[in-house]
Amino acid sequence: MDELIVEARDLTKRFGDFTAVDHVTFQVHRGDVLGYLGPNGSGKTTTIRMLLGLLLPDEGSGTVLGYDSVQDTEAIRSRVGYMSQKFALYDELTALENLSFYAGVYGVRDDDRLFQVLELLNLTALEGIRAGELPIGWRQRLALATAIVHEPPLLILDEPTSGVDPIARRAFWDLIYVLADQGVTAFVTTHYMDEAEYCSRVGVMRRGRLLAMDTPSALKQSALSGMVWDVHAEPMLEALEMLESLPGIARAGLAGDHLRAITDRTVSARDLQARLAGCGLQGASVVQIEPTLEDVFLALAGE
């Protein structure tokens, strides 16, 4: 399980005086489903482009499947399944023709493999439909099919779920796990923080810097210096105002029909209740809960 699949060492890319990727170092091991998370413009795609040898780093180096990202780009590209943000499909070609085209590009001669891929991704019924006529969720699936036709041991998926609704996103992650269960390693970028929960490891990018990389549960334990609470109190907006003014509160916000607060470690449930009661708010219920990856991001971003 510890076989090294991707390594980035101090990878850095500048565009003029803008540093898109700033000394990024990490490793991906065989079997990982790595989520590379960050908002738009945080350097995720630039990292991938350097790893694939599409962009020369200004500093640092990378290896993919043991090949050097600058020297051995041909070897890398023939062994990686890459899906770009804009699914590179031919709208005028059918699903099967698109797949057959990519099979040709990758030198796959075996037609059985095409049908095998269609079946694996539940696309068989759509093989005769032109890609341009498919809804976005199915286009995304077809783009994945074209990326795996040559049975790559590593998948690099750049924002595969962008613009796709939550239900289709969940279904897409299920597919990634179908492939992971067959031994494929996956490197997936996303700006949806909630998708971090689907990953075995998560890297958090912001403004070109990799803030952390670890398992979701380890990040929740290590990154957050405080504690997270569900607070049920009425009237809610007034309770929120009180919460914000209490000592020891790092952040407070809405959570549907209740409130959510992040406090420092010194605050207990009883303290919170007592302090709210002190403001004239009786009977508030306070329960400690797990932080989310968004909490982790905000803590890592230091704001």
Binding site: P39, N40, H191, G253, L254, F297, E303
Partner: peptide, 12 residues
Amino acid sequence: GGVDPVTRQNFW
């Protein structure tokens, strides 16, 4: 969509 969680936080 796609904005920095810090911005999202401010937005909320």
